[in-house]
Nucleic acid binder design. Sequence first.
DNA 1: GATGCTTACGCGATTCGTAAAGATC
DNA 2: GATCTTTACGAATCGCGTAAGCATC
Lengths: 281, 281
Amino acid sequence: MDPHLLRTFVAVARLASFSGAARELGYTQSAVSQHIAALEGDLRAELLTRRPVAPTAAGVRLLEHAGPLLLRLDAARADVLRLAAAPPGRVTLAASPLAVGPRLLAALPATGVTLRVLPPAEVPAAVATGGCDLGLVDGPAAPSDPLRLPDVAPLTVTGAGEEELAVLLPEGHPFAGRAAVRLDDLADARWIDAPGIGLPLTAARASVRYEGTDLLALCALAAAGHGLVLLPRRVAEAAGAGVAVPLSAPRLVHRTELLSPGAPTGAAAALAARLTAGSPV
Amino acid sequence: MDPHLLRTFVAVARLASFSGAARELGYTQSAVSQHIAALEGDLRAELLTRRPVAPTAAGVRLLEHAGPLLLRLDAARADVLRLAAAPPGRVTLAASPLAVGPRLLAALPATGVTLRVLPPAEVPAAVATGGCDLGLVDGPAAPSDPLRLPDVAPLTVTGAGEEELAVLLPEGHPFAGRAAVRLDDLADARWIDAPGIGLPLTAARASVRYEGTDLLALCALAAAGHGLVLLPRRVAEAAGAGVAVPLSAPRLVHRTELLSPGAPTGAAAALAARLTAGSPV
DNA sequence: GATGCTTACGCGATTCGTAAAGATC
DNA sequence: GATCTTTACGAATCGCGTAAGCATC
């Protein structure tokens, strides 16, 4: 179960080709073949069918493990390397789209910060594997409850604010005039699934899927009646189109959390302090 | 970052000795020294101080990563190996103490099951690394919310019941006559921290710490006035000593969940079905 | 017959153990 | 001087590439 073998295995499975994986990894076909043979011998199970190349049941199972495993390995490596490297003057901050709010804008110093907007699911990995010094993720949560984040690595999590939630409805929607809505009332509604932006509460019933991290585009879709979106009230009201109706039940808030690998140092620590100043948790 | 090197590193750090780790792992001192040197060279950082042998800051950081990493690796290995092995007639079920309730007792078939009671924190690892075919964990949660489990491996989680919670008070406690208590009312009370049994809600304020998985002993401690314990109401009332007072706020329940690596098969599947029959989630 | 995976074989690199040297208490 | 880590060196092994073999489309 050498990580190299595992990496080769996932490449072969993804590309459905030994020779393709060899090209990608800079090996020869032969080496790739030997890698897979070594894995199969070690685990005493056939992991791939050849011709066509596809994972077997055991292979699928191994793939489920391999991804997080390799991610953690990279994270560990990057984390220790970063610790050894000199603390940079320039700070890189990863943030999910909905985490970019007034608090962040106020906390940013004049210079020396790079802001990288990513889908929320990728922020923890970006911080863990070292591309970024700090991360801001957001998501729905019960008041003062922490978010449920994938634990790719032992990250330090700090609360960085909670906001009211609202549903963005198209003009003329039956509920558009209401002062508040319950999620139950919208049980049969069509939702937009936007994994790049967040709040995957209702992915199962989603009819439209939006891939990307542009809030404006998502709001436009919602305002045009292609489906509903759950957003921080502040964002929904600033959308410029559609009607924002606050959510009254269940009692959920839009929560933002700051991620850092270990305790931040230097310029990152200063930014982290400003981001979490006066935080509810 | 070969896992072998990592394993050696954690052994050296744990034993604070190169030669000790060598003995434990079946290497020579020399090999261990070379392992550490290889790691340090790879990560370009000193990981251990020698004489005395202790992890440096970078070493501590690496240790935080190494544990979960090696656990996941073992889990992946065990999982695929188990898939390849013939499905055993005998099923091993890991369960935390509070998960052993009437539901489990009713679901057990007459023969062919081994029940292993472990601290809740160890159940996921036991299932993942293959010692057990199924696992039952418990913990406090908001109604119909899933438990927060460490994700050592991609396990299948299924709800297996929710129960009311109660606080076990000693006789004569000021609140002993009440019909219900709020957790806030007990904010200043002394609690017993029992990581082997669960519900680590208030570890920070705990005065007594109980290590072990015997419920009777814990209830005896609580009834004798050494501190309060939060338990499923059923357990608290059956304790035989002390007074059980249901919890009214916050709205928490005692939730039990079934863990299995992938979809269970054979005898394990039958047991899993009986354990989750009529489950609320 | 073309494409693509497997197997045979040789070379270079890795890794371990033995043994001697060095460091610290 | 005793204990413990590091370094030097040789032997076995491992891992990759070249090249030939084999199966499938």
